[in-house]
């Protein structure tokens, strides 16, 4: 497999991203290694080709933002909004992720080996997110669809105003947000969880250790009696 190396100490980010937006036929199957990212924002955003991109260090905001098809590995930690609005493909953060990881993502798989900050998977729209560590407060706020797996603990207001997304947490949950409740682990959800654990390198962890959370659906249509919940 052909491997291309970009050193962000030498090559401007614009030039790298422009190359990554080349015609997919020129990129498909390639591996691209990016050294010295040094926390730069917007690395490898808007990809739409079957490429493997490795960021050899820490990335700033919106790394792999709006990803389509590509596989991106961040060997360090990621700033706010990693893989925001991802459509497909896979983004793997080996370190920690800051706020709004996977925000509004519609497809694909985001794996975070460490902890994630506030508002992880906010407004999730169909993607899968697996966090090896813990997540901060307001995680999965207004999450519409998709699945979030947390191997550690969750902060305050988990799943506030959630729609049809599934949340699986192995550790403790500090508090649940409005309209978010614990739900029974049915076979369909159990299978989703088993698959995601396998895909994210956690096949050895038993799905039995997880609790499932989702929407009580009491806020789907406005009722005056629920006004206090808003």
């Amino acid at each position: 497999m052909e491997s291309l190396k970009y050193n962000l100490d030498v090559t401007p980010l614009r030039e790298l991203n422009q190359f990554l937006h080349s015609n997919p036929s020129e990129l498909d199957g390639k591996t691209i290694e990016i050294s010295n990212p040094n926390g730069a924002h917007n690395i490898a955003v808007g990809l739409k080709a079957d490429v493997n991109v490795t960021i050899q260090g820490h990335a700033g905001y919106y790394a792999a933002g709006m990803n389509q098809i590509a596989h991106v590995v961040i060997e360090g930690s990621a700033g706010s909004g990693v893989a925001e609005n991802m459509m497909s493909g896979r983004v793997h953060v080996k370190g920690f992720a800051s706020n709004a990881a996977g925000a509004t993502s519609q497809g694909g798989l985001l794996i975070i080996d460490g902890d994630a900050g506030l508002r992880c998977a906010i407004a999730l729209k169909g993607a899968d997110v697996v966090v090896g560590g813990s997540v901060g407060s307001f995680t999965a706020f207004m999450a519409q669809a998709g699945n979030l797996v947390v191997l550690g603990n969750a902060g305050d207001a988990l799943g506030d105003s959630i729609y049809e997304a599934n949340i699986f947490v192995r550790g403790s949950v500090k508090s649940l947000g409005s309209d978010c409740i614990e739900k029974p682990m049915d076979e369909e959800r159990r299978q989703i969880l088993v698959d995601l654990l396998a895909k994210s390198g956690h096949a050895s962890i038993s799905p039995e250790c997880f609790k499932r959370f989702g929407s009580a659906r009491t806020l789907y249509n406005f009722k005056v009696d629920n006004a206090g919940a808003y």
């Binding site: 917007n42 905001y61 919106y62 709006m66 925000a103 407004a123």
Partner: peptide, 19 residues
Amino acid sequence: PDWTGPDDLEIKIAEIREI
């Protein structure tokens, strides 16, 4: 959902420009 305040907005606009 993924930015707060004018400094973040600057990075968000840069992201859209890059994409």
